[in-house]
Design a protein around this nucleic acid. Sequence first.
RNA 1: GUGGCCGUAGCUCAACGGCAGAGCGCCUGACUGUGGAUCAGGAGGUUGCGGGUUCGAAACCCGUCGGCCACCCCA
Length: 422
Amino acid sequence: MSMSKILPVKGARDFYPEEMAMRGWLYRNIRVVSESFGYQEFEGPFLERLELYAAKSGDELVKQQSFVFEDRGGEMIALRPELTPSLARMVATRSQALPRPIRWWSFGPFWRYERPQKGRSREFFQWNIDILGVDTPQADAELAAVAAVFFRNLGLPSSAVRILVNSRTLAEIQLETIGIPSDLRQQTFRAIDRLDKMDQRKWEAYASEVGLSDDQILALQDVLTDTEAWKQSKQLVSFFEAVEKLGVSDYIEYDPSIIRGLDYYTGIVFEARDADRRHRAILGGGRYDDLVSIVGGDPVPGVGFAMGDVVIGLVLEDAGVSPELRPNPAQILLVAFDEASLLQTLSISSELRASGLRAEWYPQADRIKTQLKYADRQGIPIVLILGPDELANGQVTIKDMRSGDQISLDRSDMIEHIGEIL
RNA sequence: GUGGCCGUAGCUCAACGGCAGAGCGCCUGACUGUGGAUCAGGAGGUUGCGGGUUCGAAACCCGUCGGCCACCCCA
């Protein structure tokens, strides 16, 4: 424990090969689903001027929850806490040149200066995927479908995760109908956001503290339990129709209490939760039609979501579908018997690599037993043994660790044989 | 940023004022050309760190760092 006195910084994680294998697996799955819908990978800078975020997210968020420092030129720099503003800038910069629709995705590190807890660290990896230049509900539906297909690919059934959808446009109309004045809208949204965190009495007290009348609170509760209200929204009707055609209806449902915290959302908003609500939101997103113009470009509508690596990992674990990954990539271990055969394994290993195989050689002539044990522990499926007998006959012995079968054959036949059993 | 719970071997934990331990994992041997199973042995600790109380502290007190929980917020 006190092996090293210098610990990782609070909320940062070491990625040993095992964890790195998991991250790589996530990244690969993200790539597969993103690309299957035609999205292109991009990346923004990890460092941004602080002002970029001030533009859109409240100053509280920026000042208290970002890693910020002053560079040597006196510039205030932030470690990026999110990608969407960078994306908006990149799109704004080439707004004229980029063919629409713009379908982009990204996976990279982000930082938030928050108190770490389960499912929340200060340094984390996030998948971002966005479609810009279209404002149709079908585009929103595609993003929800991307998320649903991703879950399905990972082995998370719709009984385990749900994508909950609402429309801010609809929510605003609902508040207006109830007679909640627009200056109470923000706070009312916040109260809605907290609905599932408080019991009813507490929530009512909170709502009344915010300035809502008893009648308004009652009416609001009606609205928030009306699971049919989406039918009043043309937007949502089209959205669910598209979701149906995309074949992911089972994952996606209307939830009038979904609001999302961010100020820049303008239309449909959604988040994914595990069915038992044991964890924070797995991903969250929505439509942001004004953001590109806020960062100084011609208006470009957009919709997208972001998913952190931490919560999805916990959810996969809970569902029992976390993959068993082998950090060691080698397909073949070359086992030597003595100094002479060890040298021979070097040239054989090169030969194997030249034919596209991943081969690792054991770097000292330990007992065969020890070397096989290493292969076993590392999960290397094939061992190539080279001892005096093999050397004398120009042969190699190839052992399949999974079946235990082994065969000695001429060196010229080894690659073909390996190809057969691999 | 506020309040609370917790830090003992790589991991999960025991000892709770009086010799720092177990299981798992790791290494070695039984088995000098063959992994997994079994058995035997071994390595690995300034009890997160710093101070205080005490004859004596892993334990009690204070501080600090880290983890977790609630708040806050969730980009």
